[in-house]
């Protein structure tokens, strides 16, 4: 996807937080990434290392927490959890599913000093 842009967004939030909470350094940063968010985690980890240089989060440990993907099945009208975007409905086998959750991309928390 656009992992560099996401890393830029993280940096901008880190800098805002650094001003608001008066800290110099982030030692650990935790993200929540939904399964359908389209984020390539290896690429984001790489972009994070590059983009955070010169920011309070330079050298910070990046942790990514997976959030499940859910979708509404248009055949059985149930909301189900899906591992893969193109999986059939685990309840009825239907193939028409509209994602309802799992596109999250957010910073959960940071350990700062």
């Amino acid at each position: 996807m656009h992992e560099m842009s996401l890393a830029e967004g993280i940096r901008s939030i880190v800098e805002d937080q650094a001003r608001a909470h008066a800290f110099d350094r982030v030692s650990r940063l935790r993200l929540e990434i939904g399964r359908f968010a389209g984020v390539e985690k290896d690429a984001l980890a790489f972009a994070f290392d590059v983009v955070m240089r010169g920011s309070p989060a330079e050298g910070a440990v990046l942790e990514m927490i997976d959030l499940p993907g859910s979708a509404l099945c248009y055949d059985c009208l149930k909301t189900v959890e899906l591992n893969d975007r193109l999986d059939p409905c685990p309840l009825c086998g239907g193939g028409r599913l509209l994602p309802q959750g799992g596109d999250e991309m957010r910073i959960k928390d940071m350990e700062v000093a």
Binding site: I13, F23, M105, R106, K108, M110, E111, V112
Partner: peptide, 9 residues
């Protein structure tokens, strides 16, 4: 210290 951010990227 730990700061709860809960902010969309």
């Amino acid at each position: 210290r730990l700061i709860q951010v809960e902010t969309d990227i």
